[in-house]
Design a protein around this nucleic acid. Sequence first.
DNA 1: GTTTAATGTAACCAAGAACGTTACTCTTAA
DNA 2: TTAAGAGTAACGTTCTTGGTTACATTAAAC
Lengths: 144, 144
Amino acid sequence: MAGNSRFAVSVHILAYLAYRKEGAVSSSEIAASVGTNPVVIRRLLSALVKARLVTAQKGASGGFALASTPAGIPLLAVYRTVEPKPDHGLNRFAPNHRCPVGARIESVLQGIFFKAQAGMEAELARVNVAEVERQLHAVCARKP
Amino acid sequence: MAGNSRFAVSVHILAYLAYRKEGAVSSSEIAASVGTNPVVIRRLLSALVKARLVTAQKGASGGFALASTPAGIPLLAVYRTVEPKPDHGLNRFAPNHRCPVGARIESVLQGIFFKAQAGMEAELARVNVAEVERQLHAVCARKP
DNA sequence: GTTTAATGTAACCAAGAACGTTACTCTTAA
DNA sequence: TTAAGAGTAACGTTCTTGGTTACATTAAAC
């Protein structure tokens, strides 16, 4: 994952839209739940709309809504939409190609990072927004 | 993973120590292979020594060496040693607890992140430094 | 013993990323 | 026609990262 909160906030947004089922929800209302600025919410929603996970309605009484049922939105799609491509630090890594190790380590690391990333994404593929909603209720039951 | 290159550089270091089998290797020699400053190398090695993955020899003709066979060093141990605890952005995330979603989303996200992290770490547990060394030679064969 | 080469670490700096914020334009329901 | 809201650019602050200098400590070699 990464050092930002984009994915966490995006899942919160989608869970909130699922919770508020009916109608268009404004970025201000979502921002109040997330505890941040409406512009931050709109920035993320801009990406989620482009990825067709959410629909937007401009103008007065406009707002956002899920583009499909909660069960139709896997968290992996959310992750890939809002998270920048993970490079695992390989961008700031420029080994000496005149050294036998330095010349070849990058492609080895790429293979390792690819598998690690795939292992993580496989778990995100197993969860969708409906499951998040279900877990929210389960937490609720544990904190009566 | 994260936005830094600590894990990538650490694997490079260990691969280099495995490649240079005999004797103590100085941080300057490693830095020349990695393409960075010796202090950066020593900072990472300081953590790897504390984790008992590497041994250090102070004084003239001192340096570093693997603490065990390359096969005895899984990359997961390296990852856990040099990488700060991944929080997946949950530190900068302070939802409104007066909202039913905001009050419960954090614990749901923690569960999701834990599984995603475990999926990634499971892949890192399958690789050790000996395997990295083997793959370095395989890359060599492909680039004769 | 003295010298020399090395680790160990603190301190500082520059570059970049992340996020909040302000300030707009554009759109549309009422 | 107005008011509410999306869309987006621009900017500042804070934090992280990695490079760099500097210096104390250690130990082999002579």
